[in-house]
Amino acid sequence: MLVSLLSVALLVAGAVFFLAGTLGLLRFPDVYTRLHALTKADNLGLGLMVLGLMLQAESLAAAGKLLFIWLLLLAASATAGQLVASWAQGKGIAPWRG
């Protein structure tokens, strides 16, 4: 019971971060800042969700699988973020200044 409550809480928290990430994606002014929103808020959101799901997982293997997926996503997201940023830099896009 407690576990499932905790699980739900984690899922909701994850969703909140996702929402924040999406909001950031929409509100932030340039490509670099949007990348911040993507890489950080969404990763955290996903991480929390994974944690929440892991609590509900039927087996250790399933839980491990989820964790594994999260790690992969972290790596991919970090790399992708850097690639996009360097592409933008290469195209000569200057950072937004308030």
Partner: peptide, 24 residues
């Protein structure tokens, strides 16, 4: 720190006006 990072970005995303002073 990734937790901090997520919270940080989320907070910034919700605030108005945007608390951003970005730079390279």
């Amino acid at each position: 720190h990734s937790l901090l990072g997520g919270v940080d970005v989320a907070l910034r995303a919700f605030r108005h006006p945007l608390p951003l002073q970005p730079d390279l």
